[in-house]
Structure formats: C-alpha cells, structure tokens
C-alpha cells in the first residue's frame, strides 16, 4: 500500500510538472461545455437536468482518455525509466495500480472542474441532484474502464501513437458492444448466448443506466471487474515486455 501511494504521488505530480495536465483539463472543459450547449441543446430543451452534458462523455473519453493512457507505460519503456522502476523494491502490480490510480484521479480532477455546469443547472431550475451525482459516478467509472484498457495497451508498445490508436479502437468496440454495428458482425457466426454476452459488455448500456440515477450493483460490478481484468492483464504484460 505504501509503495502504491509513493508511485501514485510521483505520477500525479508529474502530470502537473508538464503542460499535459493543463492542456487536457482545458480541452476537456471546453469540449464538454461546447458539446452540451451546441449539440446537446442545453437551453432549448428547457429541462433542468444534465443529460445533454453527460450524454457526450462516452465520446469525449473515447479520444481524451487514450491520450492520457498512452504514455503510462509506453513512455517508461521508451525513456528506459522502466528499468529503474522495475529494479526498485516495488512489485509490478504495485506500480501498475499506483500509475493507474494517479491517471484516474487526474481525470477525476478534470471531471470535478466541470462543476460550473452543475451550478448553472441549479441556478436555472431545480434538478434532481441525486441523478446528477449518480451520473458523475457513472462517468468516473466509465473513464476508469477506458483508462484500464489504455494502460494495458500502453504496456504493449514503446510507441505512444500506436498505443493511442489501438486503445481508441478497443474502447470504441467496448462502447458500442451493444449496438447493431458490433452485434451484426458476430451474429452470423456465433451462438446467440455469446452474442448476448458481448452485448452485455457495452459501456454505453451500463453508463446510461447509471446516469439515469439508478446505481445498480450490477453496473458497478461490471466496471470494477472490467478494470480489474485489464489491470491484471497489464501487470502480466509489463512483466513480460519490460525489457524488450
């Protein structure tokens, strides 16, 4: 635990030591605001809720989270600092979790900084703040899911561009796992119960159900186990490929 915290602190402060943090946060805030007001018709709808805000989060994360995740391990391997990290008395799992939590926390900070929109909606009307809180939790969990995939992919390559593109593609498949686009591809040659299983992996379905204000234990378990799975795979890959 102590080692995880040490890695966590180092990683988190390194975001703010470079322009990465500020660029990410500014872009995230501008994009989420612009999408809410222009594409989401926030005012025109005349409803006091944050649906127009949250409905674009999956698509924002699709590009912004892989941008954060791509450097997690690819950069360590590129600069050689992985050799230092892996020869310190810290286990691979502790490093993976520490780095992951720092990146997740960083995205959480960006998410918290969207609070003006919450103030706005409370100023304009009287929304159900319970639903908004649930949607924030769902959004944060979904970001964690994207990030775990990205962290794992980042460990497979030294090239951050490759890590980014592959992560976007895999995240896209997970996002749309419940849509005809993905399901029709499988339907032709895979039994129906496996197709159903694939469709139940959809980020979008789980996120939408949480963002309606229903925090179902199954949705939480889904995201937590997804994160656990990808981080476990991440640990194995770092261990296998650290010296390549």
């Amino acid at each position: 635990m102590r080692n995880i915290i040490t890695i966590f602190k180092r990683e988190l402060s390194s975001y703010f030591a470079t322009p990465v943090a500020y660029v990410f946060i500014v872009i995230f805030l501008i994009m989420s605001g612009a999408l809410t007001f222009y594409l989401g018709n926030y005012f025109e709808r005349g409803q006091a809720d944050l649906n127009p805000f949250f409905q674009f989060h999956p698509w924002l994360y699709l590009f912004l989270v892989p941008a954060i995740a791509m450097r997690l391990w690819a950069e360590e391997r590129k600069t050689g600092s992985i050799e230092l990290l892996m020869t310190l008395p810290i286990s691979v799992g502790q490093s993976v979790v520490g780095k992951y939590l720092a990146a997740w926390m960083f995205i959480g900070i960006a998410l918290i900084l969207t609070f003006p929109i919450w103030i706005t909606v409370n100023y304009l009307g009287s929304p159900d703040n319970g639903v908004i809180l649930a949607a924030y939790i769902g959004s944060f969990l979904m970001a964690g899911g994207f990030l775990a995939i990205g962290s794992c992919i980042s460990a497979m390559t030294k090239n951050q561009v490759i890590a980014f593109i592959i992560t976007v593609v895999i995240c896209f498949l997970f996002l749309l796992a419940g849509s005809p686009l993905v399901l029709n591809f499988f339907k032709a040659w895979i039994p129906q119960n496996i197709v159903d299983a694939i469709s139940s992996l959809s980020f979008l379905t789980h996120f939408i159900s949480i963002s309606k204000g229903v925090i179902d234990l199954r949705d939480i378990i889904y995201f937590v186990s997804l994160i656990g799975f990808w981080l476990y795979a991440n640990t194995i890959i770092v261990d296998l490929k650290k010296a390549d």
């Binding site: 180092r10 390194s14 030591a17 470079t18 600069t79 050689g80 600092s81 050799e83 230092l84």
Partner: peptide, 8 residues
C-alpha cells in the same frame, strides 16, 4: 544511460 524521470 542513467535513465530517470526527466520532468522531476
């Protein structure tokens, strides 16, 4: 090559 964390 003495790798380290350059931003620190």
């Amino acid at each position: 090559g003495a790798p380290s964390y350059g931003e620190m």
